[in-house]
Design a protein around this nucleic acid. Sequence first.
DNA 1: AAGTATCC
DNA 2: TAAT
Length: 217
Amino acid sequence: MTQNLFEEEPLPYVAPELMAPGAVLLRGFAGAVDAALLEAVAQVIAAAPLRHLVTPGGYTMTVAMSNCGALGWTSSRSGYRYTSTDPLSGQPWPPMPGCFADLALRAAAEAGFNDFRPDACLINRYEPGARLSLHQDRDESDLSAPIVSVSLGLPAVFLFGGTRRTDRPTRYQLVHGDVAVWGGPSRLAYHGVAPLAEGEHPRLGRQRINLTFRCAA
DNA sequence: AAGTATCC
DNA sequence: TAAT
């Protein structure tokens, strides 16, 4: 029997899978708390709407983004930056929901990174066709802390490469409930997401939501 | 610079 | 690789 990527129930978490030194895939790790996460996502994006940011090169990103936590990542013609307020509203980003902080802490520990207390959570919404080309997360001042990335909704192909742009990335299918963690020697690994395939998720419909936790300050 | 065109 |  082949794996059904559109199961109503998330697949159970089993064991960590190594992608690279310091980089771990926790398949199904967030499945047990997915309902709480989705409710919290809805509250955050009601206060800080998803929006398509513009890159310094002047192109509009296909992924729609928002943030919660003390700091939020944004891009504009003038560069990438972390800010304590939402440029759209002038108000502080919504606080980090307790279920977000708790999941991020537990996932990091499972991957071998103890005491992970992120101050920033970037929320990415992919609709079919949306992608994120290969890049590094390097705008954070604390590179000793890992990145924790939670997948919800439609499946995606995650591209995970090395610390040089020319390193050929490995492709991983990420489904609802999967959590990827990378830090230490993989903290500056290039990564991205292939164009999202069409599909319909029982809970989220035609979209994928990704939560990315960082220590930015 | 997390996107794209263009070249090889 | 541009060019920001």
